[in-house]
């Protein structure tokens, strides 16, 4: 038992020294093992990183950027297509509009010409009928005026015979009427 404290003191001394000088990070007796295991683990990590991890993540990112690029290109193409369709539509719309314009003008001209012709024809026929009517009126008037003489002679003959008992001859009466009418 007398031995024990001494042993303890010795061990304690050694332990105390290990504690004072043996601040664990500066304990060089552990360096070899730490370096060895660091080398082993770090080389393993390097291998895993370069063979597995980076190709995997890089592949994912590349696939994504490819996909985005492809989608953008597709969108660009579709937009160009739309633009082309729109331009074609506008063009055909303008053409149709121009054609409608032309047809309208043409139709209007044709209708005008037709109308003018019809009007002219109607006017011509009206004029003809007017002239014919005037002719007939003239004829009727002339005939009426012609008959005025004979009516006057008959009236005068009747008057003479009624007023006088003298019966004048038709020729005398006619001569007298003619003279009177000529005045």
């Amino acid at each position: 038992m007398a031995q024990t404290p001494t042993t303890h003191a010795e061990v304690g001394h050694g332990g105390g020294e290990a504690h004072a000088g043996g601040f664990p990070p500066f304990d060089s007796s552990t360096f070899a093992s730490q370096l060895l295991w660091l080398a082993i683990t770090f080389v393993a990590l390097l291998w895993v990183v370069s063979k597995v991890i980076l190709p995997r993540i890089g592949g994912i990112l590349e696939a994504r950027s490819d996909r985005i690029a492809r989608d953008l290109a597709e969108a660009q193409r579709l937009k160009a297509e739309t633009d082309a369709a729109l331009a074609a539509y506008e063009q055909s719309l303008a053409a149709a509009r121009a054609r409608a314009q032309a047809i309208a003008t043409e139709t209007r001209a044709a209708l005008n010409a037709d109308m003018d012709a019809k009007r002219a024809a109607a006017e011509a026929s009206l004029g003809a009928r007017l002239a014919e009517a005037e002719n007939r009126i003239g004829e009727i008037k002339a005939r009426a005026l012609g008959e005025v003489g004979s009516i006057a002679i008959e009236t005068a003959e009747a008057l003479v015979s009624a007023l006088t008992s003298v019966s004048a001859s038709r020729d005398e009466v006619a001569g007298a009427v003619g003279t009177a009418m000529a005045k």
């Binding site: 007796s29 552990t30 070899a32 093992s33 730490q34 060895l36 295991w37 660091l38 683990t41 770090f42 393993a44 990590l45 895993v48 990183v49 597995v52 991890i53 995997r56 993540i57 994912i60």
Partner: peptide, 26 residues
């Protein structure tokens, strides 16, 4: 002295965690 220590254990765990995380995540 090339003992496998707690330090070595955590080096192994670190590498294992990186590997597992990176592969699991992807």
């Amino acid at each position: 002295d090339l003992s496998f220590t707690n330090s070595a254990l955590f080096m192994v765990l670190t590498v294992a965690a990186i590997t597992l995380f990176a592969t699991w995540a992807t």
